[in-house]
Amino acid sequence: MSSEKAIAVQINGIGRELSAPANETLLDCLRRHGFFEVKSGCEKGDCGACAVQIDGEPVDSCLTLAWTVEGRSVTTLEGLNDTDNPHPLIAAFLEHGAVQCGYCTPGIMIAAEALLRETPEPSDDDIAIALSGNLCRCTGYTKIFAAIKQAGEVLRAGGNDD
């Protein structure tokens, strides 16, 4: 058996200790510790359902070993869902009906949030390139694009507080 160790990590801003064997992926580790908003879709980096951010960069948690996030900051969709100040992506997805079965949604939000930080006013091309690793089988992406653009507008106008 691979040896097990505890790793210290910030998850959604809260310090946690997760125990994991060396061969465990971050995906399995997070889900084992109750972070069920991180979804498993293919376990090989093809679908993006398991996307989380590590120090703000979206990665596929299925292709990340849990040990390698020691000392880092991990963000899941729950981290964008601060009850006082939820990320505008959430409201925009709701308004545009960009959610159908919802299984790809957490990964898409994680990818889209990073896009909007880098490119506050994304073009269709920017969105297409940013989401090409997030498969969605229900929506045809159209409403997702519209929601991301709207969230960008809200952020540019100063976020939720204004």
Binding site: F36, E37, K39, L94, G97, G102, Y103, T105, M109
Partner: peptide, 21 residues
């Protein structure tokens, strides 16, 4: 009317529990 679906909030916030959860 294009109402917000009853299942939408849970899914958009990642709180919906699927069978695997």
């Amino acid at each position: 009317k294009p109402l917000e679906r009853t299942d939408a909030v849970g899914k958009a916030t990642g709180r919906t529990r699927y069978a695997g959860d």
